[in-house]
Design a protein around this nucleic acid. Structure first.
Lengths: 150, 150
DNA sequence: ATGCAAATGCAAATTATTTGCATTTATTAT
DNA sequence: ATAATAAATGCAAATAATTTGCATTTGCAT
């Protein structure tokens, strides 16, 4: 019985008008356990009988990303950009190469490394992106189910 | 006076026919200090008076990537895929957010971390992707040249 | 040299995303 | 509440990157 967050406040604070489309999009993203593509947002809204245009979805996602209410994520091997609500936590992704499920990892192994790298390279490091790939436990079972391990 | 590597052998070993287009593409990639887009490969070939079709470039890059002779790289904020010769070394990218230059980093700070993560998540980790963003020394100067530092 | 599968060129298709413009809607001042 | 207005939306068409179908050409084994 998860109560919806109220996104009106977030929109207002970012100086954006509160429209049913924007609230609905933030709602869909918040309900999704994973980053999803613009088209998925759109289909999702349509099946909830919320009338919206795909270009509005794109425009809104781009806008919300620019206001940091939403994160735009691009995963290797996926030609579409994915979107998720921004909970303002630095994180990384653990991606199953088989079922494409994406898990969030909130521990960051790179904080000290960034400082070292700044000294070595004289870059002013502003951020990084770390995606880790592997097989999730379920997919390992599916694939190695036939006892054909090494 | 850099002598071209002979890519014919690489192609042959991968069971591919040796064509002037393929050799030329590998050559362009090898000459480039950075990953480049399919279209850049194409333009580069044309200015060298090597006749080729853009779709052949795409097909070839995809093929060479599948044979691991070439690496396909996608960088955040760049809508095009980039390609570079695969020197079979594990590496990461340090990307200047201003001039978009890409530096290779051959040290990997994640080897132990992957093992820890396997134990925690029960994923079978197969790889990762790490891109680090920042301002290169030159762009720092350009931007902070007016003494407007903190 | 010949034959044939594989590679290429060309045009057209596809996919993801963006844009221009007319219409509608949310907010602000009345 | 109402009107004014700037911003948001819908719709269709445009664009960018990449892919595909098919006819022609080419590399290579015989």
């Amino acid at each position: 019985m998860k109560t919806n967050k109220d996104y009106s406040e977030n929109l207002k604070q970012s100086g954006l008008k509160i429209t049913k489309q924007r609230v609905a999009i933030l709602d869909i993203l918040d309900k999704s356990k994973q980053p999803i593509a613009a088209e998925e947002v759109y289909e999702n809204l349509k099946s909830n009988n919320i009338s919206i245009n795909l270009s509005t979805v794109y425009r809104t996602l781009e806008l919300l990303t620019s206001k940091n209410l939403v994160l735009k994520v691009s995963i290797d091997g996926n030609s579409k950009s994915l979107f998720e609500t921004n909970n303002m936590m630095h994180k990384h992704y653990l991606i199953c190469t088989e079922c494409k499920k994406i898990l969030d990892i909130y521990y960051c192994p790179l904080e000290n490394y960034e400082k070292e790298l700044e000294q070595e390279t004289h870059f002013k490091i502003s951020g990084h992106r770390l995606d880790i790939y592997g097989l999730c436990p379920q997919c390992q079972k599916k694939i190695n189910g036939g006892k054909n391990n090494i």
